[in-house]
Nucleic acid binder design. Structure first.
Lengths: 210, 210
DNA sequence: TGAGAAGTGCACTGTTGGTACAGTACTTGT
DNA sequence: ACAAGTACTGTACCAACAGTGCACTTCTCA
């Protein structure tokens, strides 16, 4: 997580993306106007179109940045947790605990997921963006599936446990948890859901000797 | 599920709501235009404003209808499943199986949830609508929590199992599963996630005698 | 058949996304 | 210190859309 030195242009672009991300998560992409973004960024319309070809180009940049950042966060978490133990199950559970703590430490309710937001507005976007969205989800899935398969090698899963579904369930819980925490305005909801998922993983691979 | 006889006005209103629901789930509320709705419904703009005060009024009607319908579906499912057994755990598991079958039988990927869609665009709406959205989620939560508490009375949950979180997890799994199935365009995803949740419930209340 | 429900038609306002292009100030390597 | 970009500003314009207001017509059903 190094702090890059940005040129003036890159800094403006990042500022626009920050403002756009916030607005899109609160109002949706269609209701986010270029006018409001440039007003907040202190820029003219021409300035905006210097950085982005059109609104669709903004969407693509937004999504790409979001996916890249979150892949880094996930990787970082699993690297840190696997340094603490050699046991894949133990390491995964520690990683999930890190993740839950991270979410619990957010000052407000989770701001929302760009992938989920775009999923519910996908007909506004070009094919590239929908593909990019799917690629993002597949990247998360792959990271989790690898770990669960490592675990399953050492610990036979309890009957009825579907490893692939269990991997996707992690993403589903996070996406669903974000929706619940936002809708109900319950800040603790998301971390609690991650911990509930963690408990399922624990039960799913629990050795049976009492 | 009786088929109501609709007056002409009610039929037009329902037609508008059907079109709006479909469009909103695909493009988002902000990007859904009144023009496109009236074009598809074969109506003039004045005709639209005869049925709805403004776009916000349309949103409210859309959400209310969605929540009412789905409460009915859930109730119906649990009534049917509880007729088959006296055991609350068994009944809940049967209900979840019904639900998964229902989702698996959908011709395409799930069309999406209005509550989730609105959650990601909530700053577009008035306070009433946000409150209504929360009320919808609380209604689902209550229905599930009642059942889980009944189960917990008879079967002591395994250590680490959080009944309240487990209730919310059902909604989270469905919302998250919808997002995954849509984003990845995998039709089977949603039912599979519900079955994975069902398996967690089974493990969570499993009696320990081997 | 008559009253109200369910519309049509028209004229208008203001906002937004987007295009086009000429000009300018700031920055950076050499 | 200067040239060559980089990062903008200013102006002028268009079409699509939300929304308002009101007079008028047609359809429906008790």
């Amino acid at each position: 997580m190094s702090v890059k030195v940005l040129s003036k242009g890159e800094a403006t672009r990042e500022r626009l993306l920050d403002l756009a991300e916030k607005a899109v998560l609160q109002k949706g992409f269609g209701a986010t106007t270029i006018e409001e973004l440039i007003a907040a960024a202190g820029l003219t319309k021409s300035g905006f179109f210097y950085h982005f070809r059109d609104k669709n180009d903004l969407a693509q940049a937004l999504l790409r940045r979001y996916i890249d950042r979150h892949n880094d966060i996930i990787d970082d978490m699993f690297v840190r947790s696997s340094e603490l133990t050699d046991d894949p199950l133990h390491g995964f559970l520690i990683g999930l605990k890190f993740f839950a703590d991270l979410l619990a430490d957010l000052p407000n309710t989770h701001p929302g997921c760009i992938v989920a937001s775009f999923c519910y507005q996908d007909q506004q976007f070009s094919r590239d963006i929908r593909d990019l969205n799917a690629e993002g989800v597949r990247a998360w899935r792959a990271r989790i599936q690898v770990r669960l398969q490592e675990i399953a090698k050492r610990y036979p899963p309890r009957p009825g446990v579907d490893i692939e579904a269990l991997a996707d369930m992690c993403t589903a819980i996070v996406e669903g948890g974000i929706i619940l925490s936002r809708t109900l305005d319950e800040k603790e909801m998301l971390a609690r859901q991650v911990m509930a998922y963690r408990n399922y993983v624990r039960l799913a691979f629990e050795t049976r000797e009492a």
